[in-house]
Write a protein that binds this DNA or RNA. Structure first.
Length: 320
DNA sequence: AAGAATTTCAACCGCCCGGCA
DNA sequence: TTGCCGGGCGGTTGAAATTCT
């Protein structure tokens, strides 16, 4: 059985707000506050609106100090970097941008910023394809560009439980697998074993803990490690935005794309892939320079490699 | 100039979560 | 402990505005 509606939809007005309604709502809230009960609010004011609608109108439009449009370059950068790191948590992103609402940022991202960035990215792909050569790769990438660009991330990262405690889970994509075979990485109370399949191929990682958070991963120690940031410890391997969503680890193997590499995470098995499309797929080739300081060095090591993903093959960029 | 196509963005929908009785 | 309720959130819709042909 479905949930009861929050209001009688037959008796509430819907659609655009009139200036009169805006004025009523604004003056009431400025004078009395919301009273902690949005559902009851419209009745008090005499508005034939759903309480949720009032809340939305207030938060997204009537609230003081709201900015609309005109996103600055700096705001673009903040949105991009946060999106890359935490995904479509618009309310969290909005909290970092005073005067902006989650709805505004969401709309801005979906309508402008994403295209702007993908446009830049596509230009880079063109240039790169010319350098690397290979018509097949270029055609493939063109068609897949907005669907599942391979090379960075296709997973929703896990956000640390305490929002105050984040470091943004950022790391770099430089990966030198030479001379590394099977690093064993120790995390307190657990062990993560990473096995290289081949020099430039995927990692198979067995997780023996239920959840692997960025904050936890930061405590990884290993003898062979010299990297910092998330997933430090895999020899000379460092990850680009490699966060693990614990919801997707349990009982199944995951392919986590990161940086210019891909790696597979599972609970012991090494050859199954479980995938689902997430919003990360849309921007997975997006690398925001300030967050990926070694990106340029990565680019210089790129080799195309065909990989199988979700039953289809794609061309991933592998570092050299 | 007009119709079609595309873009923008306010608003809605439905799910999830936490507080509370 | 359980179920209800309201707040909050992300995804989606659709009308209006804008651009293109």
């Amino acid at each position: 059985m479905g949930r009861a509606p929050c209001c009688d939809k037959a008796n509430v007005k819907r659609g655009p707000w009139s200036p009169e309604e805006d004025a009523k709502l604004k003056s009431y809230i400025e004078e009395h506050g919301t009273g902690g009960n949005w559902i009851a609010l419209p009745q008090k004011i005499g508005l034939k609106r759903c309480g949720k609608s009032c809340r939305l109108r207030w938060l997204n439009y009537l609230r003081p100090n709201i900015k609309h449009g005109g996103f600055s370059e700096e705001e673009d950068n903040i949105i991009c970097s946060l999106y890359v790191n935490i995904g479509s948590r618009w309310s969290i992103i909005a909290a970092q941008l005073p005067g902006r609402t989650d709805n505004d940022i969401k709309n801005y991202w979906n309508t402008k910023l994403k295209k702007k960035i993908l446009g830049k990215q596509r230009k880079e792909h063109h240039a790169q394809a010319r350098r690397v050569g290979g018509l097949k790769q270029e055609i493939k990438r063109e068609s897949e560009d907005l669907m599942l660009p391979v090379g960075v991330i296709s997973r929703t990262p896990h956000w640390p439980h305490e929002q105050n405690s984040w470091p943004i889970p950022v790391a770099n994509a430089y990966c030198d697998l030479n001379n590394q075979t099977s690093p064993i990485v120790h995390i307190p109370d657990t062990t993560v074993t990473a096995t290289m399949n081949s020099q430039y191929s995927s990692f198979d990682i067995s997780l023996t803990q239920d959840q692997l958070y960025p904050s936890t991963v930061n405590t990884i120690t290993t003898d062979t490690c010299h990297t910092s940031n998330v997933f430090q410890g895999f020899g000379n391997f460092s990850s680009d935005l490699a966060c693990v969503d614990p919801q997707h680890i349990d009982g199944s193997s995951e392919r986590l794309f990161y940086g210019m590499e891909s790696m597979e995470i599972g609970n012991g098995s090494t050859n199954t892939t479980s995938t689902e499309s997430t919003s990360w797929g849309d921007i997975s080739s997006l690398v925001y320079p300030p967050l990926v300081s070694h990106y340029e060095s990565c680019q210089q090591r790129i080799l195309p490699q065909e990989v199988t993903f979700d039953g289809s093959s794609y061309f991933a960029m592998q570092t050299q």
